[in-house]
């Protein structure tokens, strides 16, 4: 079947989609967006978290056909999404100048990052990094609604995202850091 939906503000079309394919599979294998990770395929790890019409969901549990006509934001679009939010622009509108241009192809340096992305790097919240994309999408969404979260709020909001490397402490630091920078307007 054919599926049309919007990813990171751009219309996308996938053809010859097998009906049992998940949104995650289509993003990763058909649309060249492997940032959302496949770690459990049963909604138990959060590595595949994307925003579907603004709401964080496990993309492994969304049938590809269910995404028809919907708006999806993945980690690849997180920086643009955050930038639009800070400008107060309508979310999902395509951007004239996407981030990523002029980026160092070896390290990604020069890429414009969302505050939560920068905070994850600065706080040492990234080790193997496989859980990182899902955590970033979930954490960014939490800070959107709750700019001054308590530790318990952070833990609850991120309780659907497993990390095996860090013991979560540096992830807590990263979210606190992003919240603090956000409140300082940095």
């Amino acid at each position: 079947m054919r599926v049309n939906f919007t990813v990171n503000g751009r219309p996308q079309e996938a053809d010859d989609v097998w009906e049992g394919e998940s949104l995650l599979y289509v993003l990763r294998e058909r649309l060249g967006l492997p940032g959302s990770k496949n770690a459990c395929e049963q909604g138990e790890c959060g590595s595949c978290t994307v925003r579907l019409d603004g709401v964080p969901v496990c993309s492994c549990l969304v049938a590809a056909g269910q995404a028809e006509g919907r708006e999806v934001v993945t980690v690849e679009g997180l920086a643009d999404y955050a930038r639009q939010r800070s400008w107060g622009a309508a979310p999902g509108a395509p951007l004239d100048s996407p981030s990523g241009e002029g980026t160092d192809s070896l390290t990604g340096e020069g890429a414009e990052l969302a505050p939560i992305q920068q905070a994850f790097i600065d706080a040492g919240a990234v080790q193997c990094g496989f859980c990182t994309p899902g955590l970033l999408v979930a954490a960014d969404e939490m800070l959107e609604h709750n700019p001054d979260p308590s530790d318990a709020d952070i833990r609850e909001a991120l309780s659907g995202n497993l990390c095996r490397c860090t013991g979560y402490e540096k992830i807590m630091d990263a979210v606190r850091l992003a919240a603090a920078r956000q409140s300082e307007g940095v």
């Binding site: 492997p34 980690v75 990604g108 600065d122 990234v126 970033l136």
Partner: peptide, 23 residues
């Protein structure tokens, strides 16, 4: 020094190519 990971940016932007991401 607590220098930051050189692969950090790629990992937070989703561009870091894990073995399952290859095509």
């Amino acid at each position: 020094e607590s220098t930051l990971r050189p692969d950090g940016t790629l990992k937070v932007t989703g561009e870091f190519a894990y073995s399952s991401d290859l095509w």
